[in-house]
């Protein structure tokens, strides 16, 4: 009976860690422009950080073959030929970490041509780490009880 009570407690705590709304610190939205050089098979810079609400402009400059850039979660994309750079402007209204990746086959390692856009803090990572901590805490307690 006590076991189930503890289990329930941990599940409740887990749900709180996973879904409790977090206060969003008010940061005035900015306009940000990034020039992203694309080559086989990497973007440079490959890690972008913006704040939620920012208007983000990506200028994609292909430096060898035709590349694309698709942003996970936002479901938007552009393509650029060498010599014909392309721009994509969007409002970063979804918080978290998103991969962006080439969506035009550009050679063997094309599926792994990946960059990372972080909008605000990557809350999901911290929630997950919180859940992992909770899980370990629970495991340690149950070890203690048995011992």
């Amino acid at each position: 009976m006590r076991f189930y009570f503890h289990l329930l407690l941990f599940v409740m705590a887990g749900l709180v860690v996973a879904f409790a709304p977090l206060p969003v610190p008010p940061i005035a939205p900015q306009e940000r422009t990034f020039r992203i050089d694309a080559r086989q098979f990497a973007y440079s810079p490959s890690e972008l950080k913006v704040n939620p609400g920012d208007t983000v402009t990506l200028q994609l400059v292909s430096t060898d073959v035709v590349h694309g850039l698709y942003v996970d979660g936002y479901d938007i994309s552009i393509e650029a030929d060498p010599g014909q750079s392309a721009t994509l402007t969007f409002v970063a209204d979804k918080q978290g970490s998103f991969r962006f990746r080439c969506n035009l086959t550009c050679g063997a390692m094309h599926p792994f041509m990946i960059g990372k856009l972080t909008v605000g803090t990557n809350n999901w990572l911290f929630r997950s780490l919180g859940l992992a901590t909770l899980a370990v805490f629970g495991a340690l307690i149950s070890t203690k009880q048995k011992a």
Binding site: D37, S62, T63, D64, D81, P82, G83, Q84, S85
Partner: peptide
Amino acid sequence: YAQNCAACHGENGAGDGVF
């Protein structure tokens, strides 16, 4: 120009294209 020249001669003609 954009399709054939800019990759070497640069999008603004400055000879600074990606190649």
